[in-house]
Nucleic acid binder design. Sequence first.
RNA 1: GCCGCGGUAGCUCAGCGGGUAGAGCGCCGGGCUGUUAACCCGGUGGUCGGAGGUUCAAAUCCUCCCCGCGGCGCCA
Length: 429
Amino acid sequence: MLSIRSVKSDSFIGKCVELRGWVYRKVSLGGKIFIVLRDSSDIIQCVVDESKVNSRTWSNAEKITRESSCIVRGVVKSDPRAPGGYELQVSDLEIVGLSEWFPIRGNEGVDYLLDHRHLWIRSRRLQAIMKIKHTVLEAGREYFNRNGWWEVTPPILTSSACESGATQFEVNYFGQKAYLSQSAQLYLEALIYTLDKVWSLTPSFRAEKSRTRRHLAEYWHLEAEAAWYGMEDMMKVVEELVYYMVERVLRDRMDELKFLKRDTRILENAKPPYPKITYDEAIEILQSKGVNIKWGDDLGADEERVLTEEFETPFFITHFPKEIKAFYMKLDPKNPRVVLGFDLLAPEGYGEIVGGSVREDSYDALLKRIIEMGLNPEEYKWYLDLRRYGSVPHSGFGLGIERTVMWIAGLDHIRDAIPFPRFRERIYP
RNA sequence: GCCGCGGUAGCUCAGCGGGUAGAGCGCCGGGCUGUUAACCCGGUGGUCGGAGGUUCAAAUCCUCCCCGCGGCGCCA
């Protein structure tokens, strides 16, 4: 079976081909009907001329509606009047699935489109974004697999609150309370004791009714954890991984980036090494810009935006005050007020796409931190065990796939980085 | 959870100093041999988010509720 993209080439001019797809647009005028056919690869205009086809094909062309599926045969022609320069002179048109009136015509609002998401994903825009996401995922897998990391499959159903703060979705697990995972990290930490360097790609869930354009209740989380890795080692992995994704999208998805009108120069310039600033330096920059912030405050969305204006590539912020970060992050031996943690922020106001840290590997220090943060040590028994049986220095990070896609594709809302977004109360379709 | 904005035809919206509901697109019928969001003629279209209240009279004013959008917080 030929794809539309493959026949839009000079080598196909004059050849008779069969194409299968869906009606993207239809215009009829007198003795000619123009049908723009769509498949996963591209679109092509098909011209049905009443004087050149049999009556069955003509009546099918009259009858066919937008989004109907069909099989069309004809000769490929080059014609400057056709969008894209090529068109199909139809000799035969067969309707496979006649579409009812398609509810999306082109000027609908956000809410309506989200209610019709199962149909809206056919749009060329979402198609292009999904292809970019495919390439981001492919690049992520390839990066790890080529560099000696093992892919593992941590559980999604978990028994306890793993991280402090964020809310979890509760599920009924055979009468026991269970939760949907919001991070595979703790399980990945267990797995490094057998596989050294591990990574996983899983859905993560956050039961927060976030009202922002960069939060989802269900998102894809690319996480990695490695024994013996310190802060610098892991930051190097992060910047290599992110650039590997960017590079691969630039190589394989240029058409889609252009369709989305993405400024690709920003991506081309996003080469590592990425700048690193400490939290202290971030505070100084913000204060010099007149932002009202003091040491110890968390960096909010507004602060992140100001900082991202300072950089043209992704950049790291490191060494945050321990009070604003998770209990498992290792305190900096040189300054125990801060943790050996890092965030990677995308430029152009996109903000955090990666969060990572060196993990606390001392049993006593970890227990102390758990108690300090007001958590129940009972719930972290197995996690603490990891520090009792051959503890090892180690680090890890988590990358938000949709946030990364959002930045690479230049989207203004994270909901378009996932085909069926789950955010706020939306669960349909 | 907090702040702001919105909900009127299938869709996008106007109407909101109260007086029997409007446009464009769509849809239906007709026309057109090169359309690119086609165009031209005719037709079709409503529980004005819900409940209560004020009034002779409410889409319009008041109260409560529901839903959505944007921003903050939470974070990937």
